[in-house]
Amino acid sequence: MSTWLLLFRKEMLESTRNYKWIWIPLVFLLLGISNPVTTYFMPQILESSGVAADLVPVPTSVEIMAKSLSQYGTLGLLILALSFMGIVAAERQSGSAIMVLVKPVSHRSYILAKWSGMTVLTLAAVGLGQLGTWYYTNILFESVPFRLVWTSLLVYALWLLFINTITLFLSCLMKSVGGIAFISLGVAAVLAILTQVLDHTMKWSPSRLTGAASQILLSGQGGGDMWLAIALTIAFIAALLAGSVTASRRMWTKS
C-alpha cells in the first residue's frame, strides 16, 4: 500500500512537471463551455449569414448540457488516448520503468499507481469541464439542477475511464505508442457502433453509458439497463487491470 502511494505521488509529480495537470483540464473546460457559448450566439450567427433566426429552435438547457457531454466522447477521448498512450510503453522504452521495477516494487502497485493517476486526472478534467458547462448554461439559459449535473457526469466519466484502462492495458502489451492510441480509439468506435446496431443484444455494453448519461440529463432517469452497464463496465475495468499486471510482468521477464 505504501509503495502504491509513493508511486502515485511520483506519477502526480510527473504529470505536473509536463503540464498535464494544467492543459488537460483547461482543454476540457474549453470543450465544456464551447457548446453553451456557441448556442448563445447562434441567433446572431444565423442572422449575419442571412438565415431567419426563428427557423432554428432554441435548445433547452438540459439539451445543451447533454450535447456538451458528447464532446468529451469525441475530442475528449482523442486527447486522453493521445496523452496516455505512452504511460507504460514510453517508460519502458526510455528505461525509467526498469529503474522503478528493479526495486522491490510489485507490478501490481506500479500498474495501480499509473491507473489511479490517469483516473484522478480524467475525473478532475471532466469535472471542471462539466462545472464550466453548468455555469454558462445557468447564466445564459435556464438553470439545471445540480443533482443531474454530477450524476450524469459520473456515468459518463465511467465510459472514459473504461477506454483509459484499455489504453493502459495496450500500453503494457505493445511497443508502438501510435498503435496504442489508434487501437483504443478503434475499440471505442467499434463498441459505439455495435451498440447502436445490435441495440437489444448489447444491453450490457459500456458504450451504453454515454446514452444513459444524456438520458439522466434529459429525463432525470438513466433507464433500466444503466445499472447493468455500470456493473459490467466496472468488471471490465477490473479484468483489464489484472490483464495489465500480467502483461507488465511478462514484458519484464522477456526484456
Binding site: 503540464y19 494544467i22 492543459w23 483547461l26 482543454v27 473546460l29 474549453l30 463551455i33 450566439f41 449575419s48
Partner: peptide, 24 residues
C-alpha cells in the same frame, strides 16, 4: 456581428483560457 456587453463577458474567458494554453 455586434457583440453586446454580455457577449464580451461570455467570450473573454474563452480567449483567456486559450491564451494560457498557448503561453504554457
Amino acid at each position: 456581428m455586434q457583440l453586446g456587453d454580455l457577449g464580451l463577458q461570455v467570450i473573454l474567458p474563452v480567449a483567456i483560457i486559450e491564451l494560457i494554453l498557448m503561453v504554457i
